[in-house]
């Protein structure tokens, strides 16, 4: 069978195999390349750097395990950055799975790397509440109308960090980690714009292009996908060299990511060559 015909009838499982290998092989033999932060990512870093010490940052974890490979590295870097800068962090979730994702980041970053930080004073996890954009609307008017306790059931009035937090307007910054809806768009529509609260976003790559119209007037900055996370890691290492070894999760994954992009591009090019050759044959 001629090559062209063979390629036309290529079993999709062969493509699957190439994609699998393009990801797996570089993962087994890790290499890293320097990252060059883009302005939209640098804006978040600068935003957090400009906050006064002890400011309270709200970090809604609006994602589930399906998008954790993209958003966990962002959450990790942001949490490290906030803790190093002596900011206070309050987490919550519009997604039911978000509570587990927040717990995970707190245990692997705050509890291990910052053992001197005290739960309730330096960080708190308010957990999940139902309502999506309705919840944001409620919190803009009154936090305690919905968050009467933290995720573990401790009354909010007994948590020192929450003492002066009555509405979303009392947060200095909202750093949303978002995998879709409800997520960054709703935070901008229901909190950022009406409450005049600075919002930045860690978005999945699928969502990132949709969020660009809000930047920079309605959204301080954005990390888009694994690339955005890797850029933020580079910024963090540049500003705080003590994280050189730990802050490299997304950076380490960018090599397999690049090879997989290349394989997909090669397949698209082959597909187009087949198309043009076929068209020429038909024209004849």
């Amino acid at each position: 069978m001629p090559l062209l015909e063979r390629l036309q009838t290529l079993d999709r499982r062969i493509i699957f195999l190439f994609i699998g290998l393009s990801v797996l092989v570089p993962l087994l033999f890790p290499i890293t390349f320097p990252e060059h932060p883009s302005p939209i990512v640098t804006a978040i870093y600068d935003g957090i750097e400009s906050l006064p010490e002890r400011s309270i940052v709200l970090m809604p974890f609006d994602y589930d395990p399906s998008t954790a490979p993209e958003l966990d590295p962002m959450a990790t870097s942001l949490m490290r950055h906030c803790m190093t800068r002596n900011l206070r962090v309050c987490t919550m979730a519009l997604w039911p799975e978000g509570q587990g994702m927040a717990n995970n980041i707190m245990s692997i970053v705050v509890e291990r790397e910052f053992p001197d930080k005290v739960y309730g004073e330096d960080y708190v996890n308010l957990g999940y509440k139902a309502g999506a954009q309705g919840l944001i609307n409620t919190l803009l008017l009154s936090m305690r109308s919905m968050y009467t306790t933290d995720a573990a059931g401790t009354p909010v009035d007994e948590i020192p960090l929450m003492k002066n937090i009555h509405t979303l307007r009392d947060f200095a910054f909202i750093m949303n980690l978002s995998a879709g809806r409800p997520g960054t768009k709703e935070w901008i529509q229901f909190a950022g714009d009406p409450g005049d609260i600075p919002i930045a976003s860690g978005s999945t790559a699928v969502q990132a292009p949709l969020m660009y119209p809000y930047y920079p007037s309605q959204m301080v900055g954005m990390m888009g996908g694994l690339k955005g996370a890797a850029e933020y890691e580079a910024l963090l290492v540049k500003g705080y060299p003590q994280f050189k070894n730990s802050s490299a999760v997304a950076t380490g994954l960018m090599a397999p990511q690049a090879f997989a992009h290349l394989v997909i591009m090669v397949f698209i090019i082959i597909g187009n060559i087949i198309f043009f050759v076929e068209r020429r044959q038909k024209d004849r």
Partner: peptide
């Protein structure tokens, strides 16, 4: 151009998720 950008980002996202699974298997 907008849809092309979205396509590029979607590919990026899907590969990232696969990477997460491969890491877990590793």
């Amino acid at each position: 151009v907008t849809f092309g950008a979205s396509f590029g980002y979607t590919v990026m996202a899907r590969i990232s998720l696969l990477l997460g699974r491969m890491q877990s298997l590793r």
